[in-house]
Simulated assay, not measured.
Amino acid sequence: MFEIKRIDLREAISLRQKVILPGANFEECKYAGDDSKDTMHIGAFSKEQLVGTASFYKEHNSKLKGKNMYRLQGLAIDPEHRNELRGQTLILFGENLLAQNEIDVLWCKTRASNLPYYQHLGFHETGDTYNHKEKGLQVLMVKHL
Rank of each mutant, 00 (worst) to 15 (best):
M1W: 12
K143Y: 06
K133R: 13
K37G: 09
G43N: 01
M1T: 13
I13L: 14
D38H: 14
Q119C: 06
L85S: 12
D35H: 14
G136C: 03
A44E: 00
E125V: 02
R82D: 01
G136Q: 03
L121G: 05
C29Y: 11
L9A: 11
L106A: 05
F45Y: 15
K18D: 04
W107M: 00
N101P: 06
M141H: 03
L15T: 05
T110Y: 07
A44Q: 05
F123T: 00
L72D: 00
K143A: 03
A24K: 15
S62L: 09
K47H: 12
F123E: 01
S14Q: 11
T129V: 13
A112W: 10
R6W: 12
G122I: 01
P116N: 04
G52P: 03
E59V: 09
K63E: 08
L85R: 15
Y31P: 07
V19D: 08
E125M: 04
Q73Y: 08
L72T: 02
F123S: 00
K18L: 09
R86K: 14
E84G: 05
E3C: 15
K65R: 14
F56Y: 05
K133W: 13
E84N: 09
G52R: 03
K109H: 14
Y70K: 08
G66P: 06
Y31C: 06
Q138L: 04
E84H: 14
S62E: 10
G23D: 02
E102L: 14
L90F: 08
P22A: 07
Q73C: 07
A76D: 00
I103L: 10
H124E: 04
F26E: 04
F93C: 03
T39W: 06
A54Q: 01
P116L: 03
Y70S: 03
T129I: 14
H81E: 05
E27G: 11
T53P: 03
H124A: 06
D35W: 11
